[in-house]
Design a protein around this nucleic acid. Structure first.
Lengths: 109, 109
DNA sequence: TTTATTGGTAAGTTTGTACTTACGGTAAGT
DNA sequence: ACTTACCGTAAGTACAAACTTACCAATAAA
């Protein structure tokens, strides 16, 4: 039930190449050829990764002539961040609550 | 270069089944059979997932007799959280800085 | 208009990984 | 001692997804 709409973000960042791309865009907007430069994979592969990252709302794209400029998706990341903050808090709070009761109630349920 | 040691966490949470397991443990410590209960996959599969989550420092394990009790890894999660907070901040700050210069310097380098 | 850049899509291959069954080892009941 | 419950590992399979090459559309430059 938890982490409902952020699933795609985790899927997206689960791939090393996509993480690299994402980190690179964190340094500023780049065109596709610039992103692909220095990466071990072909440019079409990069395009496919960019699509996944975009669908996860981690990056955004605007066209400028023939170029596609990709950049960090400020809103999407903020949303993800907010959600995770809430999730961590809930998880850690429950953890501490349960930690106190652990003496009596073992092995759960 | 970024997200250096948290790579495993993203890989781990990139799998839906592992996300489900993780979310379940956020509700309190559970033994392996309890974790596997209600999941669509076999118990050995769960064991394998637990290993990945453990190596990513997202969960921790303690033995109690024959049972392995898994729980949220408080420290690991806190570390991940701290790192991500830093990363998001840097990324979004750079984003805003670059957004202002975008008028002059196009398409990047 | 022709010629280059740029980059997205299609089709097919390959590789990684999530899964299964089978097994073994350990601790707790009886 | 025997049986049962718990859980990790091994080996093999199957499927998802990351990659390739080939192709095409669109804009910019000549």
């Amino acid at each position: 039930m938890a982490i409902p709409k952020t699933d795609r973000a985790f899927d997206a960042l689960g791939d090393p190449t996509r993480r690299t791309i994402f980190e690179r865009l964190a340094g500023g907007p780049l065109s596709v050829v610039h992103i692909a430069e220095g990466l071990a994979v072909s440019r079409p592969a990069v395009s496919q990764h960019l699509r996944v990252l975009r669908e996860a709302r981690l990056i955004a794209m605007t066209r400028e002539g023939t170029r596609s400029i990709y950049r960090i998706d400020e809103e999407g990341i903020q949303a993800l961040r907010d959600y995770l903050d809430g999730f961590w808090n809930v998880a850690l709070n429950r953890f501490r609550q349960v930690a106190e009761q652990t003496q009596t109630n073992r092995g759960a349920v």
